[in-house]
Computed example of a mutant assay.
Amino acid sequence: MANTDSESKTNTDVYHERNLLAVAFLRALTDVDADAVGWWPDTDDVNGEEWAVVWVDLDGVGQVGWHIPQGMVPDWLPKRDPEYDGYTTSEKNDRVAQFAGIPEVTQ
């Protein structure tokens, strides 16, 4: 049975939803600036070849990206080297919050 938002979820459920959201976010931004999005195979030995990084350069904010299973990379997303700028997860979250107009990131 599928979970509703009020039921507890497994880590697999949560990450699947997060992966879908990351790809949907990039899809929405392709209408604004298609040159600023893409995917690249994960080159980190920790994650292996089954993973990809989907990324976007947010205007005035900087680059952000997420690791997702390569099987979730949609055909419409161009394979493009992101020229990773070295952001940390915390910096990425701050950039997304700034782009979204969220005054303070809370966890």
Rank of each mutant, 00 (worst) to 15 (best):
G48T: 01
W40Y: 01
I68W: 01
L26I: 11
R27F: 07
E17D: 14
N47H: 07
P82H: 04
Y84V: 08
D31T: 14
S6N: 15
S90Y: 09
S8R: 07
E83S: 13
G101T: 06
P78K: 15
N3H: 11
V37T: 04
D59C: 08
W51R: 10
A2I: 10
D75V: 07
M1F: 09
V37P: 01
A36W: 09
D42V: 06
V61H: 10
D94E: 07
D59W: 12
W51D: 15
D59L: 08
D13C: 02
G101N: 04
E50P: 00
W39R: 04
G71W: 05
Q70S: 11
T106F: 15
T4M: 15
N3E: 12
D75R: 12
V46F: 08
Q107K: 09
T88G: 00
T4V: 15
T43Q: 14
P78I: 04
R27L: 09
D33W: 14
V105H: 11
D42S: 13
Q98C: 05
K79L: 08
F99I: 02
Y15L: 15
V61P: 02
R27Y: 09
E49I: 11
D35V: 04
D13V: 01
A2P: 06
A52T: 00
K92I: 03
D44F: 03
Y15V: 12
T30M: 08
H16L: 10
A36K: 13
D75T: 08
D35F: 06
D42E: 06
N93P: 01
